[in-house]
Amino acid sequence: MNAKQKDVVATIAINVIVATVVGILFFLLAYILISGLPHVSWSFLTGTTDSFSGAGGIGVQLFNSFYLLILTMLISIPISLGAGIYLAEYAKDNWRTHLIRSAIEVLSSLPSVVVGLFGFLLFVVQFKIGFSVISGAIALTFFNLPLLTRNIEESLSAVPRNQREAGLSLGMSKWKTEIGIILPVALPGIVTGIVLSAGRVFGEAAALIYTAGQSAPVTNFADWNPMDAASPLNPLRPAETLAVHIWKVNTEGLASNAAQLSAAASAVLIIAVLLFNLGARVLGNYLYRRVTASK
């Protein structure tokens, strides 16, 4: 085979592989949407679940998923931002830094069931917080931190060194340069990382079964005082998420239409993840344009 033929073969092979991946993805997506969407209705999206059979709407679960996601991000973004900035800019290249990096890698490969059981023992039982949104959010933070930290570190490291020199040469402090100059340039990469980890959080079930719990008590959506027990914003109430609900309906659901229920919930879950990704990207691009004055 000459170089030209090799190139043709390689190009065909690569195209076939890509087509396979895209094909599988589209098949999955289409299957879930087609089998689920016909069962989605307004009352399904907003209704409440019968706590015994698992039948009924998923309104509370849908809200719980978003609330848990936002709470998790509120906890994990500042921490991983600090850790990422430290690793990218301040950490010296020595054994201590290597140890931190290894620890982060180990943490990222921790099975989510283990994270969930750990959260259950520590927060739910030991700290007596009980099954709650906040327990779930902290467990998911453990889950999220390694991914986000590495992502932020890599995004920051990818910004050319001469940008840092420019900031320093103008008499700006390292910190000011980092926050004002480097971080905005790294923003698109960081947003991508946040979107990816949000998808993971949204779809996570195993870690939440033991921490956020499997019940979705009826909440009063007219009461937005986080201190009230019935308020949807109360972080101490148990909060079954959509992913947990799907798992529960499938394993112990007594409803006669359990299959349709879980198919519909799956379709809603996927659409919610897509919407969230889209929204995060639009927001990220908007912020990037604002801080960099690019088109």
Partner: peptide
């Protein structure tokens, strides 16, 4: 050193404008 660098400015080998507007 921050004070010093405001009195002794520096321009580098490769142009390194910030990813911001000209004014910024």
């Amino acid at each position: 050193i921050y004070e010093i660098r405001r009195h002794i400015g520096m321009v580098f080998q490769r142009p390194n404008p910030f990813a911001k507007s000209i004014r910024e």
